[in-house]
């Protein structure tokens, strides 16, 4: 791609990744969540593939594959952690530990340290969606010869 696209990509990339990470991390407080934030970060991967060519980040293919597996396994394991109650039982909510702060009732902006299992599941699903969609775009970019123009 042209130098304009590459420069704009260099400028925009940190902001896009930062916004995606924000959406994933605040999934239990603000609109968005794991799927949306992962899709936003995957669009950053797509930006890099379109602007710089897929050959540049070909060595990260295995990394994305491993990340996808880790996300999926973490999601299922987190769901199994609540098996004392039911599958997907929120066993961390209100215990005072990690993400276990008591939630103030009524309409309030909320605290980051609440939510129990929900932030961890958001991270797992975000990792999975980021790696899955990113690897699809990367494989499509790697298809065929080197035709960066």
């Amino acid at each position: 791609m042209s130098v304009v696209v590459r420069t704009v990509t260099r400028l925009l990339l940190p902001a896009v990744v930062m916004f995606g990470a924000y959406v994933v991390m605040h999934g239990h407080l603000t609109p968005g969540g794991g799927f949306q934030g992962g899709a936003v970060i995957a669009s950053a991967v797509a930006l890099v593939v379109v602007a710089f060519g897929a050959r540049r980040i070909r060595r990260h293919k295995e990394t994305l594959s491993v990340l996808e597996d880790v996300g999926a396994l973490a999601f299922v394991v987190l769901a199994f952690l609540g098996i004392g109650g039911t599958f997907f039982y929120n066993s961390l909510a209100g215990t005072g530990g990690l993400f276990g702060q008591e939630v103030a009732m009524g309409a309030n902006p909320g605290a980051l340290n609440t939510g129990g299992m929900l932030p961890l599941m958001n991270w797992a699903v975000g990792l999975k969606v980021l790696a899955g969609l990113g690897s699809i775009v990367l494989l499509m970019g790697l298809l065929g010869g080197d035709d960066d123009r």
């Binding site: 969540g33 949306q36 936003v40 797509a46």
Partner: peptide, 26 residues
Amino acid sequence: APDVAIAEAGIGAALTTALFVLAIRK
């Protein structure tokens, strides 16, 4: 529906466009 808005902007406006641009380039 801001959840759906973020998902639509991420998937529809960014990712499918990137896929189509890559396919057209090839």
